[in-house]
Design a protein around this nucleic acid. Structure first.
Length: 335
DNA sequence: AACTCCGTCAACCGCAGGTGC
DNA sequence: CGCACCTGCGGTTGACGGAGT
C-alpha cells in the first residue's frame, strides 16, 4: 500500500498557472488570508491541489518577493550560506527575505554551481602558490561560523526580550489575524521612506496584462469563482498596468490610478520601489502581515543586519587582518 | 527555415515534521 | 501512543525560449 496522493489526481489541474487562476487565488487570499490551504481549492473552485496553491502563493504571488537579477550581494550571501548550511534552501532563504527558497535553489543550481566550479577549476591551476589563501579562507569560514552561532544565541535572546510581556515588543505588529490580508498601515519604525515590496505587484500586474488582454470568454465559472473574480476585478479595474515591463496598459480604462496604487491599497504599502535591491531588512512584508507565513520571521531585523554586515565585512576583514572579535563586540551592542 | 541543443525556472513529487484528536 | 491531517522542505522534472548548427 503506497502513500495516498496528497490530493485526488482526477480533476486536478497540473502545469503552469493561468493568470485567471492567479487572480482567483490572490483574491481568495486577500479575503481570507493565507493558510488553510486544504480549503482553498474547494472554496475558490480552482481545480488545483492545495499544495499547488500554497506553492504558487509562496513562490510567486506572495507580496514582498523579488524575482530575477540576483545582486552580487545576494550571490555572496547565498554562496556563504550554502557553504555554511548546505542545501537547506529554506534556511538560506530566511536570510534573504525577498527571495524564495525555490528561487535560491534554482539560482544555485543554474548559476552559482557552475560559477563556483569554474572558479575552483581556475584556482586549482594556481593552487601551488595559493595555499595560504585557501588556509585563510578556511579560517575565515570558521570564524564566520563561530560568529553565526554566537549571534544566533544573541538573536534568540533579543527575541525573548522583545517578546517578553514587560517590554513592548519590537517584533509584534498590531495586526490581528482577523485582519487577514489587510496589512496594518503601521510601518516598521526603521522604514519610513521606502518599501521593498516589489514582486507581487509586478507579478500580478504581469498576469493581469495577460489576463486582461484575453479575458475569460464567459464567466462560466462557479458562483464562488465568479465572486472572487469579481471582487478582484473590482479592485484592479481601471488601473493602468505600469509594471516594470513597460506599461502594456492592458487595462486601458485609465482612471488615472496606477496599478501599483491598487496594490498599495490592496496590500497596504506605500511605495513599490522594486528597484530597491538592498538586502538590508529595512522592510519585510513578513514583518507585518506575513510573519505567519512560510518564511519564519524568527530573524529579527537586527540579526539580518548582522548577517548582512558579516558577509561584507568578512572579506575586508580577511584582507585587513581585522580582529573579528571586534566586530562581534560591535554587533553585541545591537542587542 | 528547420532542427537540435542547452539553460532557465515554474511546478510537481514524495518525504518529514508538527499538531490535534 | 497512534493516527490523520496539514504544511514545509528539498530534489527533480518538464515546458519553454534562445542560441547554435
Amino acid at each position: 500500500m503506497g502513500r495516498p496522493p496528497c490530493c485526488d489526481k482526477e480533476g486536478v489541474k497540473k502545469g503552469p498557472w493561468t493568470p485567471e487562476e492567479d487572480i482567483i487565488l490572490v483574491s481568495y487570499i486577500q479575503e481570507h488570508g493565507p493558510g488553510n490551504w486544504r480549503a482553498v481549492p474547494t472554496n475558490t473552485g480552482l481545480h488545483r491541489c492545495s499544495k499547488s496553491c500554497r506553492l504558487r502563493w509562496t513562490n510567486y504571488l506572495r507580496p514582498g518577493i523579488k524575482r530575477g537579477n540576483f545582486t552580487d550581494h545576494e550571490e555572496k550571501m547565498i554562496i556563504h550560506l550554502q557553504a555554511l548550511l548546505g542545501n537547506r534552501w529554506a534556511a538560506i532563504a530566511s536570510y534573504l527575505p525577498q527571495r524564495t527558497d525555490n528561487d535560491i535553489k534554482n539560482y544555485w543550481n543554474t548559476h552559482l554551481k557552475k560559477k563556483l566550479n569554474k572558479l575552483q577549476a581556475g584556482t586549482e591551476g594556481h593552487s601551488k602558490d595559493q595555499g595560504s589563501s585557501t588556509r585563510s579562507q578556511a579560517i575565515s569560514r570558521g570564524q564566520w561560523e563561530r560568529r553565526l552561532q554566537t549571534d544566533i544565541h544573541m538573536a534568540r535572546q533579543a527575541l525573548r526580550d522583545a517578546l517578553s510581556p514587560e517590554k513592548p515588543s519590537i517584533l509584534s505588529s498590531d495586526l490581528k489575524p482577523a485582519d487577514g490580508f489587510l496589512i496594518s498601515t503601521t510601518k516598521p519604525a526603521q522604514d519610513q521612506s521606502t518599501t521593498t515590496y516589489a514582486s507581487s505587484t509586478e507579478n500580478i500586474s504581469r498576469l493581469l496584462k495577460g489576463w486582461m488582454k484575453n479575458p475569460p470568454k464567459s464567466s462560466s465559472a462557479k458562483t464562488n469563482l465568479a465572486k472572487t473574480q469579481h471582487s478582484f476585478t473590482n479592485m484592479v479595474s481601471g488601473f493602468d498596468c505600469t509594471s516594470s515591463e513597460g506599461a502594456t496598459s492592458a487595462a486601458n480604462t485609465t482612471s488615472g490610478v496606477e496599478l501599483s496604487d491598487a496594490f498599495e491599497s490592496l496590500f497596504g504599502f506605500e511605495s513599490l520601489d522594486s528597484s530597491n535591491s538592498d538586502l538590508s531588512p529595512s522592510m519585510s512584508p513578513e514583518a507585518s502581515l506575513f510573519q505567519d507565513e512560510s518564511k519564519p520571521n524568527l530573524i529579527s531585523d537586527h540579526f539580518l543586519s548582522l548577517i548582512d554586515k558579516w558577509i561584507f565585512d568578512e572579506d575586508a576583514a580577511a584582507i585587513q587582518g581585522k580582529d573579528m572579535m571586534t566586530l562581534d563586540h560591535e554587533n553585541a551592542n545591537f542587542f
